[in-house]
Computed example of a mutant assay.
Amino acid sequence: MTHVIITGGSSGIGLALARIYAERGARLSLLARSLPALEAARLELARRHGETSVHIESADASDEDQALAAIRKCEAAFGPCDILITSAGIVEPGRFETQTSAAFRQQIETNLFGSVNAVRAVYAAMKERRSGKIMLVSSGAGLIGIYGYAAYCASKFALHGFADALRSEAKPHGVTISVCFPPDTETPQFARELEHRPLEATVIMGRVAPWPSSAVALRIVRAIDKGQFEVFFGWTLWALGRFGATVKPALNWWFDRGIRRMIPRR
């Protein structure tokens, strides 16, 4: 039976992924910082799917020792990890000059190193078995810079680079590396993010409706099934991913134009 480990599995995209794999009958291990949220997720999955095999571990993915210890407990419960999805992440919008160094660093440590730590915990054993799949959850903000998201963009761009390099190392050993770039998604974190999103970011990004977390999760799972390396959502992110050097100058011109129009109003 497939053992799926999901960091950030207590809510949002992570929980939506857990629902899909629970429906498939997989053994699930969910990691997140909040134990009450994890308990709630486990109860929900049990109500939906009966005697679903769900193991939970409270851990901060950005802490290497915590992440390693938590994943070791998951594997002790359900066996080696077959699929790892690193969905744990945080976003704290704010202009670079007003955002604290601690807030900037926390986003880098959670979004980048939180994923790296989880991968490190399972990668060597996957190589030894010559099997395993790893999906890294980046963001549309990992494809183009966005006003007020310097730290978040830095972390998600870095995650793309990590995935790109690791894919090359892992492929000869039978381990599949994937990375996805979700758009704005209906999650509890997104609701909190909107409260702090700078007006300039709202103007240049428009009023595009966020994707349901269930739709994002379904596309991620299908990409894992196919062994797809890069996963995009919508034609804009696909174009950025495939033709970024061509598309970004036009988008940046449009963004800059919108921001300039706002300056006299201040």
Results as ranks from 00 to 15, higher is better:
residue 1 M to D: 14
residue 2 T to F: 15
residue 2 T to P: 15
residue 5 I to N: 08
residue 6 I to C: 12
residue 7 T to N: 02
residue 9 G to W: 06
residue 10 S to A: 06
residue 14 G to W: 05
residue 18 A to D: 02
residue 18 A to R: 01
residue 18 A to H: 04
residue 21 Y to F: 11
residue 25 G to W: 00
residue 27 R to A: 15
residue 27 R to V: 14
residue 32 A to G: 03
residue 35 L to Q: 13
residue 38 L to I: 02
residue 47 R to I: 10
residue 48 R to A: 10
residue 49 H to Q: 05
residue 50 G to T: 07
residue 53 S to F: 11
residue 56 I to F: 01
residue 57 E to W: 07
residue 69 A to I: 04
residue 70 A to R: 02
residue 74 C to P: 08
residue 74 C to W: 02
residue 76 A to F: 11
residue 81 C to P: 08
residue 84 L to Q: 00
residue 92 E to H: 15
residue 92 E to M: 11
residue 92 E to W: 13
residue 92 E to D: 10
residue 97 E to S: 12
residue 98 T to Q: 12
residue 101 S to Q: 10
residue 109 E to S: 11
residue 121 A to E: 13
residue 124 A to C: 09
residue 127 K to C: 15
residue 134 I to Q: 01
residue 134 I to R: 06
residue 139 S to I: 05
residue 146 I to S: 04
residue 149 Y to K: 05
residue 149 Y to M: 10
residue 149 Y to C: 11
residue 150 A to G: 09
residue 150 A to M: 12
residue 156 K to D: 06
residue 156 K to T: 07
residue 157 F to H: 03
residue 160 H to P: 09
residue 162 F to P: 01
residue 163 A to R: 02
residue 163 A to N: 07
residue 163 A to Y: 01
residue 163 A to V: 02
residue 164 D to R: 10
residue 165 A to E: 04
residue 169 E to I: 09
residue 175 V to A: 00
residue 178 S to A: 08
residue 181 F to N: 12
residue 183 P to D: 10
residue 183 P to A: 12
residue 185 T to V: 03
residue 187 T to N: 08
residue 187 T to P: 01
residue 189 Q to D: 14
residue 196 H to R: 14
residue 197 R to P: 08
residue 198 P to V: 02
residue 201 A to C: 14
residue 211 W to Q: 10
residue 213 S to H: 00
residue 218 L to C: 13
residue 223 A to L: 04
residue 224 I to D: 00
residue 228 Q to N: 14
residue 233 F to N: 00
residue 235 W to L: 15
residue 238 W to I: 06
residue 239 A to C: 09
residue 241 G to V: 00
residue 245 A to C: 13
residue 251 L to V: 09
residue 253 W to L: 14
residue 258 G to Y: 07
